[in-house]
Every structure is written in structure tokens, then in C-alpha cells.
Design a binder for these strands. Structure first.
Lengths: 342, 342
DNA sequence: TTGTAGGCGTTATCAC
DNA sequence: GTGATAACGCCTACAA
């Protein structure tokens, strides 16, 4: 199938020198005569020589590859994070192997295994919905391959985490709705066994409590935040209630936008009947009518931060083990969907 | 840094057999005694043995890795395609190395080089805005490494392409606006040197022509479709014109949504004053008010198709060289943003 | 400044 | 069924 590869030996032979010198020249090793080097580099270009990473990696025990496992590739937030990671990593000469867990532990474990076999220099991971134990990461820990968790992190594991203050964000969002006069705030969110959703929920509860509102379990809906789930819980549950909530804190912008559409269809006025606040500050929140209030979540910056920490560590410029948790800043963004008072 | 690796030799030694047998057992080679195999597999698990892909790849000259180069990671469309590719590829035991060209030829070439050095088994690529020559892909062609272009394809190169009928889609979109009574249809789109935008533009022109409307160059705006560009061209140009166009065909949904927001802000009534149609059928087009008409572009299916073609080829089940172009089906989706007549 | 030689971990070929 | 052995292409002590 493939043509004969051109190797450093071919170059060495044609130039009647040793492969070692060729290898050195191609790596810009200082101890090599400038002229010899030029001859080597020129010939390499002429022959279209391409270094074989496998041989090199095999030899050097380093791959310049970072593995990334995410629940799903196709969300605005995730692709922003990935874009940030890729940018920094690529500039530093690192490659990215990306795979999706599709929100299941098994696929996540399987992907981790593959990453491990591929000897990634580091692993970046945002956990699946149903991941509860972290055995599948043990091989990395044993071999001291750095792991960075982001967004959906593992509480019980002692590793570097990059995330936002979900409690605070949840608190802020809820508090804002309360300040706008909401008394019964519906909270639609994801699986509470994941830190992101749990912390936001705790923030929600605390904000209620601090404002003298009793938490009502009927106002909590957990699902996978898919369009189907949103449609289902609104049409078959919320909209059928005798008393409609007057506020909605829903933890993703696409879901918020979709919920808004359904509510409007059903004749609910936003924000008058129900004030809405989302999460993430995706473009989608800005183009709805009314525009949706949200929490700004800097995905791109998160990605860049992750990559930078990793690369500094891999280059030995800093030690990841001293950096336990990085919290990125979020902001409350108020738009018309939640402005009952003007 | 890393602990000692466990190799097939370690296993062989402990079991007092040869490494060759261990290797065979671990690959399910038929010619190995069931009992020996069990002993080997058990010990391998116990020791936490992990096959070293580099050594294996080096030896087998095959990497089970597919390189993917896209203009940008962070678009709804792109992440859907990637998600599709990843799903199929991963199930078939292939890994994905993904990188972004950030719409520049240079980065694209550099990424292609890296992919090549990593000896990817195949390359999947959607071209950058300013890529005009394809020298950077020559090494792949020479070595007969399959390349699949998708979405933004190269006309001049003889390779497999997966795309939609952009001409037809552009025609349909425009025709629809005309049928709704539009006479002056603004077309906001990307760089016309890219097939996707050029073909849609040609479709647009042809639809005008077929309906007796003269093409007016003032109604064509090309930019990078970023929020900034959209805002700029609308506020500083279109909205200042003495006569506003009565239709808008804009070739991406996020841009359409953003344009809609700006137009509404400026007091333009949609669809009465201006009918709008976008492209892609992203969620964003559905949650706007009015919901935006668009062309359904099956990104996920495109991704899966790409991966499937590639994998069939790599497995020798079919030959990619006989498959030149795959055109996926698109549909016109009519929503309120373009419905002048009811 | 350059060359020699050994090994990174796996797999394929050949014997037995 | 199993074992020796020779690559795969590169890198790096060490020697010259």
C-alpha cells in the first residue's frame, strides 16, 4: 500500500554520513557542523523526508499528544472549550486526540483505555452523566500521567480541576430572579450527581433560603436537558399545573431558548408570567425574543487555561501537582427574559 | 518520570514462554493453545499490561488514526459533523486527531504536515477560507493516504468529496423568497472562492434569472459571517440604504439569527419588511422570533458518511478511489421568517 | 564534530 | 503450537 518510507538512513547513505548525524541535524542539535546540517536539511526536503513519530515516540517515551474525553462534541460550550485547548496545545506542538463518552461510563472507560494505550502525555476529561467511580483512570494515576478535569469534575479524586464556581453562579441566577419579584422559581437542570448541576442547585436553594423562600421539591426537575426532555417536562407537567411558576432557572442556554419557545407557544408571557434565566451565554441566548438572561461561562478561556497548565507541566516549567483547582470567573448577564422590573 | 512499562516480555518471562506467543495470544491469533492463552490474558490483566501502540504501529505501519482538519471547531455545524465522524470511527477502533486551521492556509498546511508525520491512516479535511493551492496535501497523495474533503471541498483535486448540492440549495432558498414576493433579495455570504459559498451564490443568481429578476451586484455582500462582520455590514451599509431589500438569504443560521436581532432592533419587520432565510438548520434558527426558514444540512449524517467510507476503504471492503463524490440530501425548511403570504 | 551500537515494544517469518 | 529472530525508524550514550 504505502510507498517506501524515506528514513534518516536513506539520507545518511546518500550523503555518506551516519544516521546519527542526520538525526541530530534534523533536531537542530547544536553539535553539528553548519554545512553538514544544511546539506542534510536540503536533501531531506528534496526527498520529502518525514520523521516517523512512532519510532520517535517509541524511543523517547513521549508522544506530544493530549487525550481529551468529553461527554458530547456537539454542544456550543464544548466546542468552545475544545477550540481553546486545541489552539494552545497546537501552538505548543501538541496534538489532540478527542473522543466522546456519549454520557456513559462504559464508553468513557473504553476511551480512557484507548488514550492510555496511545500513551497520551496527559488526559483532559469532563465526566459523563453516569460516571460514579474512577477506576478507569487508575492506570493514568499509577503512571503519573497528569489528568485535568474540567467542568464536570470528580470530587473524590485528588487531581487538578478547572471549573467555575457553580454554587455562586446558581446563587446569583436565583437571587436575580428573586430580586425581580419571583416567588416560585422552577429549576430545570441535569443529573444532580454531577458537581456542575448539584452545585448550581445548592446555590439555588441557598439563595431561596437567604431570601426567606421555602424550597419546594416540586419546583425541581432533573433530566438530560435534551430538547425532548425539555419539551416533555414542560408540556406534560409544568404547563398542566394549576399554578405556574413565576420564574425559571434552567442550566443551559440551548434548553432555555427551547423552553422559551415552548412557553411562548403556550401563551406564557416572558418575563411577565415567567422570568427566565439560562446558563453559558451562548449566542443562542442573545437572539431569542426576549433575549435570555444567563451566566457567562468562558469556555474558550477555560480551554486555553487547561492547555496552558498542562503544557507548562509537561515542559517542566511548573508542577501540576501543586495546582489543585482553578476557578474561572463567571458573570451574571441580565437581559429581558428576566426583567420584570425596569 | 514514568514507571517501568509492563511489556510482553515481562509476561513471557513470568510464564516461561516466548514473547511471540504472548503477542499472539493478546491478538487472538488462532494458532495458540486455549489454556496458554488464558494464562497469558489473565496475567496480562493482573499486571495491568497495556499494549504499546507505538511499537505496534511502528511495526504494522498502520496507526488506526484518522486526522481531521477543520476551519474552526466551535460552530454548531462543525461539531455535529465531528460528532458523527467520531462516533463511527471510534466504534470501528479508530482514533481521531483533530486540529483547526483557523481559516488560514498556513495553519492548515502545518496541521497537515503534523498529521502526516503522525502517519494518520487517512485525512479528512474541510478547507480554510484562503486555501488556494493544495501542495500541502501532496505528501498524502504520493503515499496514497486517502483524503476525504467535506463541505468546503477542492474542485481541482481528484479526491473523494462529501458535500451537499449547494447550487440547488441556494436556488431553492432564493426561489422560495421570490415565491413569497421578494423582488430585491440581499445575499450575505462567505468567501466566493470557496465552493460552498460560490455554488450557493450561483444558485441564487440562477433563481433570480429564472424568475426574471436582474442580478444586482449591490445586493451581494461577502464577508466572514462573523457576528462582527454581520453587524458591520448591516448597520453601516444595508440599514443606511434608501431602499431596503425585501428579502435576505444569508448562508449560516447563527448569522441569520444575529442579523434578525439587529434588524428587529432597527425596527425592520420580519418577514413583512424583509423576509429571511438562513442555512444549516441549527437549533438557533428555531428559537428565534420569528423562527428562521433555512436549509436543512445533515451534519451528523455527513460525519457518519465520511467515517464509514473511510473505514470501509481502510478495511479493504471497498475502494475509495471509485467513489468520487457523495452528495447528501438537503431540504428547504419554511418557517415564519420568510412567510409573507400565508 | 561525527560514528558506533544498542534498544524502545511489537509483530511477522521462519523454523521446529 | 511455540520459539528465535529480525525488522519497524529513531534517538542517545559513549567512543573516537
Amino acid at each position: 500500500m504505502s510507498q517506501k518510507e524515506i528514513t534518516i538512513y536513506d539520507i545518511a547513505e546518500k550523503l555518506a554520513i551516519s544516521a546519527a548525524t542526520v538525526s541530530r541535524a534534523l533536531q537542530n542539535h547544536p553539535a553539528v557542523n553548519a554545512k553538514t546540517k544544511k546539506r542534510i536539511v536540503d536533501l531531506a526536503n528534496e526527498l520529502g523526508y518525514q520523521s516517523n513519530k512512532f519510532a520517535s515516540n517509541l524511543r523517547k517515551q513521549k508522544t506530544h499528544t493530549i487525550g481529551v474525553i468529553v461527554p458530547r462534541l456537539n454542544s456550543a460550550f464544548m466546542s468552545t472549550v475544545l477550540s481553546g485547548i486545541e489552539k494552545v496545545a497546537n501552538n505548543a506542538g501538541y496534538n489532540l486526540i478527542i473522543s466522546q463518552s456519549f454520557e456513559t461510563h462504559d464508553k468513557e472507560a473504553q476511551n480512557a483505555q484507548t488514550m492510555f494505550n496511545n500513551r497520551v502525555d496527559a488526559l483532559v476529561i469532563s465526566l459523563a452523566y453516569d460516571t460514579k467511580d474512577y477506576k478507569h483512570l487508575n492506570s493514568f494515576i499509577k503512571k503519573k500521567i497528569p489528568i485535568i478535569f474540567f467542568d464536570r469534575v470528580a470530587d473524590k479524586i485528588d487531581a487538578t480541576k478547572v471549573l467555575i464556581d457553580n454554587f455562586k453562579a446558581g446563587y446569583q441566577a436565583t437571587e436575580h430572579l428573586i430580586q425581580q419579584g419571583c416567588k416560585e422559581i422552577l429549576h430545570i437542570t441535569g443529573n444532580l450527581s454531577r458537581n456542575v448541576y448539584n452545585d448550581r442547585f445548592e446555590g439555588y436553594k441557598k439563595a431561596l433560603e437567604d431570601n426567606g423562600i421555602k424550597y419546594d421539591q416540586k419546583l425541581l426537575i432533573c433530566n438530560d436537558l435534551s430538547e425532548k426532555a425539555i419539551e416533555d417536562c414542560l408540556k406534560n407537567d409544568v404547563l398542566k399545573r394549576t399554578k405556574l411558576p413565576d420564574g425559571l432557572f434552567i442550566t443551559s442556554d440551548p434548553s432555555a431558548a427551547y423552553a422559551l419557545t415552548i412557553l411562548k407557544e403556550a401563551g406564557v408571557k416572558v418575563p411577565q408570567d415567567m422570568a427566565i434565566i439560562g446558563f453559558n451565554n451562548d449566542l443562542i441566548s442573545r437572539v431569542c425574543e426576549p433575549a435570555i438572561s444567563t451566566i457567562n461561562y468562558p469556555g474558550n478561556q477555560m480551554g486555553e487555561t487547561i492547555a496552558r497548565i498542562l503544557i507548562n507541566h509537561l515542559n517542566g516549567e511548573s508542577d501540576i501537582n501543586y495546582m489543585n483547582t482553578v476557578i474561572l470567573k463567571t458573570d451574571l448577564i441580565v437581559r429581558n427574559s428576566s426583567l420584570k422590573k425596569k
